[in-house]
Every structure is written in C-alpha cells, then in structure tokens.
Computed example of a mutant assay.
Amino acid sequence: MELHELKTRLQAHLSDGLILVVGSGLSCAEGLPGMRDLAAHLCQTIVAESNEAQDWNEIVALIQEKGLEAALLQKAPSQRLEAAISAETGVFFAEAERSVISEVFEGRRTLRLTPLLAHMLKPFSGLPIITTNYDRLIEVAVEEAGLGVDTMFSGRFAGSLNERESHLSFCRNATYKKPRVILQYKTRALVYKPHGSLDWYLRNGVPVSYQGELKSAARLIITPGQNKFRNGYESPFDQHRARANDAIDRASRFLIIGYGFNDDHLETHLSPAIRGGKPTLLLTYELSNSAKDLASKYGNVMAIDREFRDGVEGSRVIIDRNHIFLPKLKLWDVKYFVTEVFEP
C-alpha cells in the first residue's frame, strides 16, 4: 500500500458517527506516570497498621512479581488499605497533572489531543470521549480546542451530578419555529469517565465536582483490583459507565488511543462492537495482546504502534490484516499522526 493511500484511509476514518476512546497511553505521552510508576510509588509510601502489615507485605510482593492490577486482583486489600491506595493514587497523579497543565496555561505546551480535535467532526449532540484516566488532560485539551466540556456535573463549587442541568448549561440560543422551539448548543465534547476523576469528591455522602485540591476529602476514583467491580456500580461511576456504553452501542466507528483493552467495565460493549464490524483505528505506543489480536483477526480494524526494524524506529501498521512497516514515521504518536496525515 502506498503512503498516500494509507493517509487517505486514515483521513476517511475520522467521519460521521466516530467516538473517541482514550486510555492511559495518551496521558503517559504527555508526561504523566503510568501504572508501573504508580505501583512503585504505592509500595514506597503506603504504611500498613500492625494488624494489616502481613497482608500488605504479601500484596507488595505480588505487585513486584505480577504488577499492580494483577496483584490486587489476586489479593484484595482491606477497606482501610484500599482507601489509602486511592488517596495516594489521587495525590500521585494530581501532582504530575499540575505540572503539565501549568505548561499549557503558560503557553509552553499544546496537548496532543487539541490539534486532533480540529480534524474531527463534532455532532450537534456532542462528541463522545470515553476515558479510563483519572486526570483532566482531556478536559483541558478540549477547552484549548475551543469546545465545551460536558461531564454531567453542574456548578463551580461542589458541582452536583445532574446530567440535565449540565446539558442545558451549553444552550446558547432558542428560536421559535412553529410548532416548536429549536435550541442551539455550544459545540462540545461529552466526556465520560467510568473510573472517576481527580476533581470528583465525596461530600456528606454525595458525589461532587471541585476543581481545586481538597487534602482531607476522599477523591472518587476506582483503583485497580477486585473492588473496582463493586465500586464501578456506585454513583457517579455507574452513570458515566452507562453513558459510555450507550455511546459505544450507538457509534458507527471508533478511534482508540493508548488503550489496552483490559477494562471489564467497557469490554462488555467495546470489543463485541469491534468484532461486530464497526470500523476501528487504534493508535498506541505498543499494542497489547488483546489489541493485536483484534487487529490481526478483523479486517475492520486498523492499528498503528511503534516498532524497530534493523535499528530504525518507525510505525507498524496493521491494515486489512496485513503488517506494514513505515520507517522514521511516528504515526502511533497523536502529535505526529496529525502532522503527517492532515497537514500538507
């Protein structure tokens, strides 16, 4: 396949009915830590009480052997340890996020997602973006692209989870055209975060959104392990998960960035939709085994990741179940994907 033909295929993919699914790979590309970094941080900072010390030592040994999620799936922490893991996870990612966002605010950095959004169709109903990430880089990138961000929370201080109010807050005009009123909305993204967000807190037993730092408040994020399945069916995670899965079911096609296909909250809908024939484009630093399997078996899946051949870095492209190597092109990186595919 000629390069110009590939670029035409990639451009055509960003068309009607597209939704965006974003995993931790995109945040890592912006400099945020990954799961290995988090695992090391937790092992160094969590201090177990005497009655939990043996259990925590066993968990630490499992983390070092199998990785964070596999360890917490094998041995569930106590409720207190789980709370400590969640708190430390929030602090760890928030500190790294703050540094990146400061650079954006000062004009020293453009997030990768911002220029990509310029080349995506924005439906009247909003562009669905589903992410398993806790950080708010997607929200920042969307606003930097001049779009609104609808997270289903409404209000600046202790914003409430109210999908209707959040939706109506983007209404910009109303015209009467007999026999009905036509509402005009700001172009926006619908950001669904089934694992929670760094700005979600629990206040008097009610989930709220607050953009600042609250050191004594419990962040609402779902950390890896057995308990994430239980927690995923509590508010506000259940509403975001339901809307994310509904968007997946309604989508015509997918653009999936930095996502490893290892989240059961989404996989019940996403992978079957892909196997059912919906056109899909995967961009990632390294394809997970699950992602590689989808691209190898299903002709509706295009996948691009990083590969070295004969000491030369380039892009591995899986298209029509065939493997192509493009030396010296970083199409797997969203930053270079935009410049190579859409800019002359």
Rank of each mutant, 00 (worst) to 15 (best):
residue 253 R to Q: 10
residue 117 L to M: 05
residue 33 P to I: 07
residue 18 L to D: 04
residue 128 P to Q: 08
residue 58 E to W: 00
residue 27 S to V: 13
residue 47 V to R: 14
residue 299 G to P: 00
residue 115 P to C: 03
residue 219 R to G: 03
residue 229 F to D: 14
residue 313 E to N: 12
residue 223 T to Y: 00
residue 125 S to C: 05
residue 331 L to N: 05
residue 46 I to S: 02
residue 94 A to E: 14
residue 91 V to F: 12
residue 38 L to M: 02
residue 11 Q to P: 01
residue 144 E to L: 09
residue 178 K to E: 13
residue 334 V to P: 05
residue 279 P to Q: 03
residue 41 H to M: 09
residue 194 P to L: 05
residue 262 N to W: 02
residue 42 L to Y: 01
residue 16 D to I: 06
residue 50 S to F: 15
residue 140 V to K: 11
residue 335 K to F: 07
residue 314 G to P: 04
residue 222 I to N: 07
residue 192 Y to I: 01
residue 284 T to A: 15
residue 157 F to K: 15
residue 92 F to V: 09
residue 168 L to E: 15
residue 85 I to C: 13
residue 176 Y to C: 02
residue 126 G to N: 04
residue 198 L to W: 08
residue 176 Y to I: 07
residue 128 P to W: 10
residue 23 G to F: 01
residue 204 N to I: 00
residue 78 S to L: 02
residue 34 G to T: 10
residue 54 Q to H: 12
residue 296 S to P: 00
residue 177 K to M: 02
residue 64 Q to L: 10
residue 221 I to A: 07
residue 139 E to V: 01
residue 19 I to R: 02
residue 42 L to K: 07
residue 248 I to R: 07
residue 254 F to P: 03
residue 34 G to M: 12
residue 164 R to D: 15
residue 297 K to W: 00
residue 242 A to F: 11
residue 306 R to S: 13
residue 169 S to K: 04
residue 260 G to I: 04
residue 175 T to V: 13
residue 218 A to C: 05
residue 115 P to H: 05
residue 230 R to N: 14
residue 164 R to K: 11
residue 145 A to D: 06
residue 241 R to P: 01
residue 14 L to M: 10
residue 157 F to Y: 14
residue 328 K to A: 09
residue 266 L to E: 04
residue 206 V to N: 11
residue 79 Q to L: 15
residue 300 N to Y: 07
residue 5 E to T: 14
residue 141 A to C: 09
residue 71 A to L: 04
residue 308 F to V: 15
residue 283 L to Y: 09
residue 252 S to E: 14
residue 4 H to M: 10
residue 117 L to S: 04
residue 306 R to Q: 14
residue 209 S to M: 15
residue 123 P to W: 09
residue 206 V to W: 01
residue 19 I to S: 03
residue 48 A to F: 14
residue 293 D to C: 11
residue 26 L to S: 03
residue 330 K to C: 07
residue 330 K to W: 00
residue 344 P to W: 06
residue 72 L to M: 03
residue 202 L to K: 09
residue 336 Y to F: 15
residue 183 L to W: 06
residue 193 K to A: 05
residue 151 T to S: 08
residue 233 Y to L: 11
residue 113 L to P: 03
residue 283 L to H: 09
residue 53 A to I: 03
residue 45 T to C: 06
residue 106 E to T: 13
residue 206 V to Y: 03
residue 14 L to G: 02
residue 128 P to Y: 10
